[in-house]
Amino acid sequence: MIRGTVLINRDICKGCELCIAACPQDSLGLSDQINRHGYRYVQLVQDNCTGCINCALVCPDCAITVYQEPRAKAKSSAQRVPAL
């Protein structure tokens, strides 16, 4: 399994939960804490992210940066899809 992770900008997250619904791994959940705007923000709740970027795609606030482990060398970088 490809390993990935996300960096969530909790200051601009509005806790809409669309990313939680979009995540195929159930990696995301709402924090019990609120941010300075009063929203419960999203965080990783399981360390099983694959870096599929679905969460980032549906995020209306562009709050999610997605990271992924470099894939096997056999795959050339040309075959990699950078964003979409």
Partner: peptide
Amino acid sequence: MESAATTNHMEIVYERPVTLTDTPMH
């Protein structure tokens, strides 16, 4: 910023485009 796992040895596969300003949306 919140990070639940280390991003060491990982590469960015999705990030905010520079054509979007840093202003949080209303």
